[in-house]
Simulated assay, not measured.
Amino acid sequence: MIRLTLYTTLGCHLCEALEAWLGRLAGVEVQLIRVEISEDEALMTRYGTRIPVLADAAGEELDRGFEPERLAAWLAARGWLDEAAWRAARGGEAQRPEPRGAEVRGGRRYLSPAGKA
């Protein structure tokens, strides 16, 4: 299992896209720690115009991880990319996947309660 940090803020649709692609492309189990930047002025200054930002345990950051190509390259460089999933995504199935544990009702995305994904 790997631990990644996602610098995010409430209602960030790009962050949702990154999480969805991460769930699809990661070839290893991921523990995602979400850091709300709006509650800290220093984080707002550092990440406010860059979110979503994904960081690994070494502090290496990925901006614009909602772009599948960037995320796939970042994961591959660390040996964490599910190559088969990436091939499938590039083969015409590249629309944004639904995040695991999410349900769409009436055009709105709802997350399942913790532990019920």
Rank of each mutant, 00 (worst) to 15 (best):
R78A: 13
R100P: 07
E60K: 06
L4P: 13
V53Y: 11
E41W: 14
A42V: 14
E67N: 14
E103R: 02
R100A: 02
A117C: 07
P97Q: 05
C12K: 04
V30N: 02
E19Y: 05
A89Q: 10
L4H: 07
A26I: 10
Y7R: 15
L10W: 12
A57P: 14
W80S: 01
W21C: 11
E93K: 09
L6P: 15
I51Q: 06
R87M: 15
A42R: 12
M1D: 04
A114V: 07
R105L: 13
R108W: 04
D40T: 15
R96Y: 14
L75R: 05
A85W: 01
H13T: 15
R64Q: 12
C12W: 09
G23L: 10
I51G: 02
Q31V: 01
S112E: 05
K116F: 02
E69G: 12
R34N: 09
G79T: 04
L81V: 04
T5Y: 10
V104L: 00
E29Q: 13
R50N: 06
A102N: 06
Y7N: 14
A88R: 11
P68A: 02
T45P: 10
R78Q: 03
T8C: 13
E60P: 03
R64I: 10
A117K: 02
P68G: 01
L22T: 00
W21Q: 09
E29M: 05
Y7A: 15
E29W: 07
R108A: 01
G115S: 00
E98K: 02
R108K: 05
A72D: 12
D40Q: 15
Q95N: 12
I51T: 08
R24E: 13
R105K: 15
L6S: 14
S38F: 11
R78S: 00
G11W: 05
M1I: 03
L62T: 05
Y110D: 03
V35M: 00
E83Q: 14
R3W: 11
W74Q: 12
Y47R: 14
G91F: 08
I33K: 00
G115N: 04
E36V: 03
L111N: 00
E19P: 11
G23D: 03
A117M: 00
F66N: 08
L22H: 00
R50Y: 09
A17N: 13
A117L: 04
V104N: 06
G48F: 10
L71I: 15
M1W: 05
E41V: 14
V35I: 09
G79Y: 00
